[in-house]
Design a protein around this nucleic acid. Structure first.
Length: 891
RNA sequence: GGGCGGUUAGCUCAGCCGGUUAGAGCGCCUGCCUUACAAGCAGGAGGUCCACAGUUCGAGUCUGUGACCGCCCA
């Protein structure tokens, strides 16, 4: 087996190969476990992307976080299941296919319902689920054998079952209410699917003549004058003295010249406008309520495309905005339009197509939500579900406590058809699991309700339906509740809240608890580098596949992980990705370094495990200690979903300690005595292999490639993803080694620093003088070779006298060091540097002394803080003295 | 109108339970193609932690007020 790695890291050359391998080998497939399985279980459900969707950065962030957590759990030995799937996405998909039909010069109406639905299925066969293919390429370690689609037969059956049961329990009802109506999609939509926007429009003042009292008017104000065609009253506040004399009288509705009553109702605000308000029960939710209170007729004046219908008299057939113009014109002619002023108000738009929503009276199906919400609130209050970041629980409560019934019917053709049948004879409605044969009245002509269900109705059931509910399956027993949900805050209400409500309701008797997941991790939005929301119209959308091709999947994943700190949005910055590609390249070259020595040293092996004998060397004790400390930190960070911390910790360790220091230190060992070189290389292999496992959840591709290459014959597992994740081993921690190493690094950096300042050429080796305690001298002597090489120097002379005022010297609390070099120090520059440093030190000492002089501090602050400050003050004092001497000696 | 979040280096962001001299990446400056890596190495500059007031022995961190930016809900 050849271990030649190309000189430059080329992600394109390795990633596709491993991505295919993982899928082909079914490495992440999980079979239904046997009855007696004791393994800890970790389950995650992929928030199903729309079947119409293309992968965007938000998905990639979401999936990266999930994959890191999943790979981490799997490597920790859990039975780890990640279930993928897609959502049929009612409106979105229907729109997509309708657009296609329009291009072909036809329409769904011309096709008819059955043919249209068939057409959508065909569309799905050809184009659906592109996103899952992209996920495969990105290496998401999901169980592809369990892939679902929300319209699958079994899932659809479960949807019917849920609908019927809720109906039986009185939690689903049908009725005529004001709903948000999208005139373009020609369907009702839920409150959540309406986005509110400020709109600079006009407010119109219109006079309504008092019936039978010529010359008397009430003036009302409205932003939607066209709805006056449906007015069935005008309301005034009962306490409003201006109108007391008109109570019980009637008005003439202008244009249609209909008689409408004046009603007294608190909802008319005396402070607003004239204090009188028109009441249109069929086209405004507040008016609808008022209409019910006063028994007013409801006159619907618009059809499903928001054109004025036959109730609009002469305006019938006009679009709502044409009608507005005509009505204003006619009112003006009659002298009834008495004012127009600018007015900014909120309008609702359809989330999907941005058409202005029309509140409209129509018959729909609703879920009575309060009983469901109560349990869902309780589950979070009791801590059965924990939110991270915690403040999202507050947002959740806020919404759940002010929740309205959920309109679940949609006037679409693509989706789960409502399992209700209407008897043509007696209009009875029969809700049933299967098509009923006949009605109670004996009628056999039954027509299924034409509506389909809100897409979120079915996705809200997924945590249990993907495991076979309503059957009592073994999967359900083992995998429900899922362990964690990772998702964006944008679907907190759409999806997360609904899953909790439906899970708590339908899984109430589940032995492991009814909640659909025990934890929810909410991540932020991915924005562009300028913090702008990515959008097609702005043209600032970063295509994850494109950046992936440019920098490699591992680099993009690492970027997202390292920027995913909770609470703030991710401003995706390609410069960062470029930096992490460099990191991947660093890992790559460190591996090449290791393989180079394996080829060079006779009989060398990388995977024999570490030799304890090697631990007599400081650098080895140090790197083991560091590795285990870092391992502990990474595990802690992942436990609390601090992907950013985990990524940064592992990055700093690998690059800043392992590569920059350790590899440099061991070079002579590796090219020296053969036996020692062999041992040294084995130890290097041990550390490297551990580091690869530590990195694997973040960068699965490059670690997989190098890991396999480390084994001469065959790796112990089919994938590094199946190896064990590193765990902190206390016995490897070595404070002493870390302190000693820190001191030596400090010495080396100081010498490098002096060399740079005195402009010593890189090839010139300089001797140094060191003044230090006997103990420190011992440490330096033992590691003389390392120090000389890394600091490009030759010869260390220990001197008894202080070097503080020697030219070109550096002082630290542990040692003083000076270069022996004939070139003169740049006196002016050195003076400046010393002065600056002294100022800093003095300020610091002053503040330390002030605190130490404070009795309250001494008595109240914890001992380690006081001792630390004392030690530090003493050291600072010494450094100041040395600095002053040095400054004085410069003249 | 109600609620939530943010403001730290030129840029993008960390900074955990208040505790020693506030960190990283990118960018910038200086010197190096040192046989793993120039996508690199070594060294360096760069901060009134938005403002004010308070709590505290001690505040980037906690509290209040204000300014600015953003988000969600109505």
């Amino acid at each position: 087996m050849s271990h030649e790695l190309p000189k430059t890291y080329d992600p394109g050359a390795i990633e596709e190969r491993w991505a295919e391998y993982w899928v082909k080998e079914k490495l992440f497939s999980v079979k239904t476990p046997a009855q007696n399985t004791q393994q800890r279980v970790f389950t995650l459900l992929l928030p199903p992307p729309n079947v119409t969707g293309r992968l965007h950065m938000g998905h990639m962030l979401n999936q990266t976080e999930m994959d890191i957590i999943i790979r981490w759990h799997r490597m920790r030995g859990d039975l780890t299941l990640w279930v993928p799937g897609t959502d049929h996405a009612g409106i979105a998909t229907q729109m997509m296919v309708e657009r296609q039909l329009a291009n072909e010069g036809t329409s769904r109406q011309q096709l008819g319902r059955e043919a249209f639905v068939k057409r959508v299925w065909e569309w799905r066969e050809h184009y659906g689920g592109a996103i899952l293919a992209q996920m495969k390429r990105l290496g998401a370690s999901v169980d592809w054998d369990r892939e679902y689609f929300t319209m699958d037969e079994n899932l659809s059956r479960a949807v019917t079952e849920v609908f019927v049961r809720l109906h039986e329990q009185g939690l689903i009802y049908r009725g005529k209410y004001i709903v948000n109506w999208c005139p373009r999609c020609m369907t009702a939509i839920s409150d959540l699917e309406v986005v509110h926007e400020d709109y600079s429009g006009k407010m119109y003042q219109i006079r309504y003549p008092v019936w039978g009292e010529p010359g008397q008017f009430i003036t009302i104000a409205t932003t939607r004058p066209e709805t006056m065609l449906g007015d069935t009253a005008v309301a005034v506040n009962p306490k409003d003295e201006r109108y007391v004399r008109l109570h019980g009288k009637k008005l003439m509705l202008p244009l249609l010249e209909r008689e409408i009553p004046i009603i007294a109702d608190d909802f008319a605000d005396p402070e607003f406008g004239s204090g009188a308000v028109k009441v249109t029960p069929a086209h405004d939710p507040n008016d609808f309520q008022a209409g019910l209170r006063h028994n007013l007729p409801q006159i619907n004046v618009m059809d499903e495309q928001a054109r004025i219908n036959e109730n609009g008299g002469p305006y019938a057939g006009l679009d709502r905005y044409e009608a507005r113009e005509r009505i204003l014109h006619d009112l003006e002619q009659r002298g009834l339009l008495v004012g127009i002023n600018d007015h900014t108000y909120a309008i609702g738009k359809c989330d999907r197509c941005k058409t202005i929503v029309e509140p409209r009276l129509s018959t729909q199906w609703f879920v009575k939500i309060k009983p469901l919400a109560d349990h869902a609130i309780e589950a979070v209050e009791k801590g059965e579900i924990v939110f991270t970041p915690a403040n999202y629980a507050k947002t959740y409560f806020e919404w759940m406590r002010n929740i309205y019934d959920w309109c679940i019917s949609r006037q679409l053709w693509w989706g789960h058809r409502i399992p209700a049948w209407h008897c043509v004879a007696c209009h009875e409605i029969i809700v049933a699991r299967t098509t009923p044969g006949k009605c109670k009245c004996g009628g056999t002509k039954l027509e299924q309700d034409p509506d389909v269900l809100d897409t979120w109705f079915s996705s809200g059931l997924l945590p249990f339906t993907v495991f076979g509910w309503p059957e009592k399956t073994r999967d359900l027993e083992v995998f429900y509740p899922t362990s964690l949900l990772i998702t964006g805050f944008d679907i907190l209400f759409f999806w997360v809240a609904r899953m909790i409500m439906l899970g708590c309701h339908f899984m109430a008797d589940h032995p492991q608890g009814s909640v659909p997941f025990n934890e929810v991790y909410i991540h932020a939005l991915v924005r562009d580098a300028e913090r702008q929301k990515m959008s097609k119209t702005k043209g600032n959308v970063i295509d994850p596949i494109e950046v992936t091709e440019k920098y490699g999947t591992d680099a993009v994943r690492f970027t997202l992980a390292s920027m995913a700190s909770p609470g703030t949005d991710v401003a995706f910055n390609e410069a960062r990705t470029d930096g992490y590609r460099a990191f991947a390249n660093k890992i790559w070259n460190a591996a090449r370094f290791m393989f180079m020595y394996r080829d060079r040293i006779a009989g060398a092996k990388l995977t024999d495990g570490a030799s304890e004998a090697q631990l007599n060397r400081l650098e080895n004790r140090w790197i083991y200690s560091r590795f285990h400390r870092v391992t502990g930190e990474v595990n802690d960070s992942l436990r609390s979903y601090r992907f950013d911390e985990a990524a940064n910790t592992v990055y700093k360790f690998f690059w800043g300690e392992f590569c920059d220091w350790y590899l440099e230190i061991i070079k002579p060992t590796l090219s020296g005595n053969e036996a020692e070189a062999r041992e040294g290389l084995t130890l290097l292999g041990d550390i490297f292999e551990g580091a690869l496992r530590l990195l694997a959840p973040f960068m699965p591709f490059i670690t997989e490639e190098i890991w396999h290459a480390m084994y001469v014959d065959q790796a112990p597992q089919k994938s590094i993803a199946l190896a064990r994740y590193p765990e902190l081993e206390e016995r490897r921690l070595n404070d002493r080694a870390e302190e000693d190493m820190a001191l030596l690094q400090d010495l080396i950096v100081n010498v490098r620093n002096l060399r740079a300042e005195m402009k010593v050429g890189p090839r010139t080796k300089t001797p140094v003088r060191v003044h230090a305690s006997a103990q420190v001298q011992g440490l330096i002597s033992e590691n003389r070779g390392m120090i000389e090489r890394l600091a490009s120097m030759e010869g260390i002379e220990f001197v008894p006298q202080s070097l503080a005022n020697a030219p070109g010297a550096r002082s630290t609390p542990n040692f003083e060091v000076a270069l022996v070099y004939e070139r003169k120090v740049d006196t002016a520059a050195e003076k400046e540097r010393l002065t600056k440093e002294l100022t800093k030190l003095e300020a610091h000492l002053a503040s330390a002394q002030k605190q130490l002089g404070n009795q309250h501090f001494l008595s109240k602050a914890p001992a380690p803080v006081v001792d630390g400050l004392k030690k530090q003050a003493a050291e600072t004092q010494v450094l100041i003295e040395k600095g002053r001497q040095a400054l004085a000696s410069l003249g």
